[in-house]
């Protein structure tokens, strides 16, 4: 048991605990915040493992961007503040989830622990340093890296178009109310509180039209 081991156990415990809380808490927003903690401490775990760059990117992208996006999404979908019983699936499904999750963990652990049994990494002479990673990305791995840029571009275009189309349609519905093609428009107006949601969202021109 080295010092690094002890540190890792500590960080890992935080990660696991916050992950557990993020999937069990009844507060919708808390779940996202616990995820934030979990991913952040995972970045710490990367640091302990000697992968500074990965840890940094984890902080930047995951904590800085993804979780923030998740929080945004929760707010845009009018997530309730405070405990909410409705966020969990029926009990039988949760039991199934627990069984399957346990099975996954058991399966992975039973295979990985023997695999890494006794394996150690000497982090004082790290095999991969940040310059090496940089060189690898722009050298060996330049092809998938370029593809990744295409993927990001396409994802942005797609996400933009998808969110925009509905905004347009909502707008179109409002403009000519007697348009016969959109029965759903009337549906959504029928049930009371959801109407409020729709109008609330669509009345924010900034959200939808942002490109």
């Amino acid at each position: 048991m080295t010092t690094r081991d002890i540190v890792f156990v500590a960080v890992g415990a935080v990660t696991a605990l916050s992950a557990l809380l993020s999937v069990t808490t009844k507060h919708v927003v808390h779940a996202a915040l616990w995820l934030l903690v979990s991913l952040g401490s995972l970045a710490g775990a990367y640091l302990v493992l000697g992968q500074e760059l990965v840890g940094l990117v984890q902080l930047l992208v995951y904590v800085g961007a993804i979780v923030v996006l998740v929080l945004f999404a929760l707010m845009l979908t009018r997530a309730p503040i405070g405990p909410h019983a409705e966020i969990d699936t029926p009990r039988w499904q949760r039991v199934a989830g627990a069984v399957l999750g346990g099975a996954t963990t058991a399966l992975l652990a039973s295979l990985l622990l023997p695999l890494f049994a006794g394996a150690t990494a000497d982090l004082d002479r790290p095999s991969t340093t940040t310059p090496q990673i940089a060189q690898a990305i722009f050298g060996t791995w330049v092809w998938p890296f370029e593809l990744l840029s295409v993927l990001l571009l396409v994802a942005l275009v797609g996400a933009f178009a998808v969110s925009r189309i509905v905004l347009q349609r909502d707008g179109a519905d409002r403009h000519d109310a007697d348009h016969p093609d959109h029965p759903d428009h009337h549906d959504s107006h029928d049930d009371g509180d959801r109407t409020a949601a729709t109008t609330a969202v669509t009345s924010e021109p900034g959200t939808g039209r942002v490109g």
Binding site: M1, T2, R4, D5, F8, V9, G12, T15, A16, A19, L20, V23, A45, V48, L49, R94, G97, A98, L100, G101, G102, A103, T104, T105, A106, L108, A109, L112, L113, L115, F116, A117, G118, A119, T120, A121, D122, L123, D124
Partner: peptide
């Protein structure tokens, strides 16, 4: 020095929590 079975165990745990 760090024993790699620790992060491996954490990975297994996280995967299971994710499935749940």
């Amino acid at each position: 020095m760090i024993h790699l079975s620790l992060p491996a165990a954490l990975a297994a745990l996280l995967a299971g929590l994710g499935v749940y």
